[in-house]
Amino acid sequence: MKDMLSWDQTLFKDSELFELDHIPEHFLHRNAQLQSLMFSMRPALGGGRPINCLCTGKPGTGKTTAVIKIFEEIEKHTSRIIPVLVNCQVASTRYAVFSHIFNKLIGYSPPSSGVSFKKVFSEVVKHLVEHERILVVALDDMNYLFYENEVNEVLYSLLRAHETHPGARMGVIAVLSDTGVPHMLDPKVESVFLPEEIIFPTYSVDEIRDILSNRAKLGFYPGVLDDSVLDRIAGHTFDLGDLRVGIDLLKRAGLNAEKRASRTISIEDVESAYERSRLVHLSYVMQSLKEDEKILLGLIADSSPANSGELYERFHSRTDLGYTRFYEMLKKLDAVSLIDVDFTGRGLRGRSRVATLRYRADEIKTRL
Rank of each mutant, 00 (worst) to 15 (best):
N87G: 07
Q33H: 03
F315P: 09
E153Y: 03
E190H: 08
S113H: 08
S191Q: 11
R252Q: 12
S304T: 09
R263I: 00
T93K: 08
V154T: 05
F315M: 11
I81L: 00
I70F: 06
V97I: 01
Y274T: 04
V125M: 06
A261V: 03
K118A: 13
R252M: 12
G241A: 07
N256T: 02
F238E: 06
R49P: 06
E291H: 10
F200Q: 05
G47H: 01
D239A: 13
H183L: 13
P182I: 04
G171E: 06
N256Y: 09
E313Q: 15
P195F: 05
G219W: 04
V172K: 08
K217V: 08
V129A: 05
R276H: 12
F39I: 13
E258Y: 06
M170C: 14
A234V: 00
E148I: 01
I134D: 01
N256F: 07
E291N: 11
K259V: 04
R160V: 13
L255W: 07
S112M: 09
P305A: 01
A253C: 01
A161P: 05
V136R: 01
L28R: 15
A261Y: 09
A66T: 06
N87E: 14
E291Q: 12
R252P: 10
V125F: 00
R263M: 00
E190Q: 14
G223W: 02
T356R: 13
G48N: 10
V189S: 00
R244F: 02
L250T: 02
D242E: 13
P222A: 03
Y156S: 14
A161V: 10
I267K: 14
S228D: 12
D8V: 02
